[in-house]
Structure formats: C-alpha cells, structure tokens
C-alpha cells in the first residue's frame, strides 16, 4: 500500500521562519527513535519570512513509498491562528484532527496556547514566539509518538526549554 496499514499523515501550516520544516523533521526523528518509519517533507523553494508555508510528515510501521504532498491529512497543525482558511483544512480526513496555536478556543479544533507557553519559557526570536517544538507536544498527546520520544528528538537539536514547552502543551490538552 502507500507504505503500510497504519500510515499517519500530518500537515503543518506556518509562516516562513516559524520552523514548520524543523517540526516535521523532529516528528520524523521521534518516530524513527521508536523504530517506526517516517519521512519529513518540506514544501518550499525560496524561503521567505512571514509567508505561509507548509510541511509534511508521514509516520508508519512499514517503509513509506510516497513522497508527494499530504493531501488528506490525519492531523493538521497550525502555528498561527491567522492562517486559518479553507486551504488549511482542505482534504482533512473525516475523523481528522486540527490543532491550532490560539489563546482563544476555536470551535471544532484543538486549541493550545503554544505562543504563551513559548513566551513564558523565553522561546522568542525577533519578538515572535517559536512554537514549533511546543506544538509537537500536541501530536504526542494524540499518540503519534510518545512524549518521551518527542522530547528526546527535540533535545538532539534544541535546549531543554523546548522540550519543556512540548511537555506543557502535552499537559494542556485534555482529551
């Protein structure tokens, strides 16, 4: 099949500079640490700060053959609530989940205040909270990978605060 029965497809929506490509990669890394197969795919050319960008991640128990864009995601992760439009939820699977970084609750979506958490931990660059590592905690909450793996993957590249941010987001989501 597309690379195994349990294929989970995740699409990240962010702005250039928010680290969506890194997020996809860290998620792939975390899955890899658990012995799963994973791929992270950036969808960019010239990187421009602030412009809407997407990246993709696939996680499976079997080798993954497809490398095309994720068109029917199981999970959509949105780093900036202002990005929400029809494109963001396009193709979302019937039982799919949308996780957004927002201080206010948005109906039908899982909302987490990743910006607030990032700010409180000092994860700010050019006055913009860096939420890419925090948002991975949300995906751990949905058991795509364990929180432990997410934290280890984050710590391979980033400092402890990023792992804490992921954990705080993880704890904030009550299912």
């Amino acid at each position: 099949m597309r690379g195994g029965g349990e294929l989970i497809e995740i699409r990240f929506h962010a702005r250039g500079g928010q680290g969506a490509v890194t997020a996809a990669r860290l998620l792939a890394q975390a899955a890899f640490m658990e012995g799963k197969h994973s791929t992270a795919i950036p969808f960019f050319g010239a990187e421009r700060r602030g412009a809407p960008v997407v990246s993709f991640c696939r996680v499976s128990d079997e080798p993954i053959k497809i490398s095309s864009a994720v068109c029917e995601p199981d999970f959509v992760v949105v780093f900036d609530a202002r990005l929400i439009n029809a494109d963001v939820i396009k193709g979302l699977k019937k039982d799919g989940t949308v996780i957004i970084n927002s201080q206010v609750k948005v109906n039908g979506f899982i909302s987490v205040d990743a910006s607030g958490i990032a700010r409180s931990l000092g994860l700010v660059r050019d006055n913009i909270p860096m939420v890419n590592t925090a948002m991975l905690g949300a995906l751990a909450r949905f058991e795509i990978v364990s929180l432990k793996s997410v934290k280890s993957a984050i710590k391979e590249t980033f400092d402890e605060r990023n792992a804490i941010a992921a954990e705080q987001v993880y704890r904030e989501i009550i299912l």
Binding site: F32, H37, S38, F44
Partner: peptide
C-alpha cells in the same frame, strides 16, 4: 530537488 534533497528519511 526538495522532494528528495530536503526530505528527511531514515
């Protein structure tokens, strides 16, 4: 380019 050069895999 990108789809393989910048995609992360095991």
């Amino acid at each position: 380019g990108f789809v393989l050069s910048h995609s992360a895999q095991p």
